[in-house]
């Protein structure tokens, strides 16, 4: 049985149930790299070019961690996942960046997915990817449909309030049942739910009695509607989710505070952060705090900010009562 390696990074947190079902449906074994740890992070930062953002460096680490373990690495080139918006430019170059990393890496399955070019081209990509494992187009189609169904179940779980790791099967990642406050956490799921990278942000919030809401829980229609007030449509799909979720929570008074986790050197986020800070204030006085993370992982700084942020909310509420 061929082994296909999936780095536990970037779009893993968005589409893994689809990928797993698809490859397994074609008779492959799917091997995921272990959760990020110091070794993986160091592997990534040592090999990546310095201008890469933290999550791309982490991706490198995960790809390298699979060296010698698998027959092929799955690193798709995800250009666009909806008609009129793109993903981050770094995702566009990902398979090439990985191929250039290390000559001893397993071959890279780097199929391009670009919904901008319509569904026909998209299915051609699915077929191209599947044909590495079978010649039977029907089998590929069936594997894709099964995968799409799994993804739908996954998305549904998220919409109903599960956190990403929980929906991916991590049982100890339940949201709080009896929270004393609700905090919206926005940013890329590959930062927030990589416990090593985010320095356990979500669990720290749980420990302080906060329930965590994430953009994945907001229905796509609500996101679209919330951002329709912006004078210009947003260029990037995943940033759209961030902005839309923030507006939606604020408009419906659903959170006591919002934390926006940003990785240092993230291009899209550096623009969106400013937009969000300006626009959110017009909607509601609910506090919003950007938290910038990088590979030097200064935990003390994160803890101080987090404590101050939660204290601020607590003291404000105590004053009102």
């Amino acid at each position: 049985m061929p082994k296909i390696g999936v780095p536990r990074a970037l779009l893993y947190y968005k589409y893994f149930p689809l990928w797993k079902t698809f490859f397994e449906g074609l008779g492959a074994e799917v091997v995921v790299s272990p959760p990020t740890n110091k070794r993986i992070l160091n592997l990534g930062t040592e090999t990546a070019e310095s201008e890469a953002c933290l999550p791309v460096k982490v991706f490198y680490g995960h790809a390298l961690a699979l060296k010698g373990e698998v027959d092929a690495l799955f690193v798709p080139r995800v250009v666009s996942v909806e008609g009129k918006a793109y993903t981050c430019p770094k995702f566009l170059g990902l398979p090439d960046m990985i191929k250039a990393l290390d000559d001893d890496l397993p071959p890279v399955l780097g199929t391009t997915f670009n919904l901008r070019q319509g569904w026909r081209r998209f299915f051609a990509s699915i077929y191209e990817l599947g044909s590495h494992l079978t010649r039977n187009p029907l089998k590929i189609l069936r594997a894709f449909y099964n995968g799409a169904r799994e993804l739908k179940i996954f998305d549904q779980k998220l919409r109903e309030g599960s956190l990403v790791p929980e929906a991916l099967g991590e049982t100890d990642f339940k949201n709080l049942a009896n929270p004393t406050l609700t905090i919206g956490v926005v940013g890329h799921p590959y930062n927030i739910f990589d416990s090593y990278v985010s320095m356990n942000l979500v669990k720290r919030l749980h420990r302080r009695g906060a329930k965590v809401l994430t953009p994945e829980m907001v229905p796509p229609e609500a996101i679209e509607e919330s951002i329709s007030s912006l004078p210009k449509s947003l260029f990037w799909t995943y940033e759209k989710d961030v902005v839309g979720a923030i507006f939606y929570w604020l408009e419906n008074n659903m959170v006591n505070g919002i934390i926006y986790m940003i990785s240092f050197a993230c291009g899209p986020d550096s623009l969106i952060q400013v937009l969000v800070e300006q626009e959110a204030r017009k909607i509601s006085p609910v506090p919003l705090m950007p938290l910038v993370i990088d590979e030097h992982s200064g935990e003390a700084g994160l803890v101080t900010r987090l404590e101050a942020f939660l204290d601020m909310i607590d003291r404000k509420r105590a004053r009102v009562h």
């Binding site: 006085p285 506090p287 700084g301 101080t304 900010r305 101050a308 204290d311 601020m312 003291r315 404000k316 004053r319």
Partner: peptide
């Protein structure tokens, strides 16, 4: 009398 925003 209450903190409403901060930056470090």
């Amino acid at each position: 009398g209450v903190v409403v925003d901060f930056a470090m």
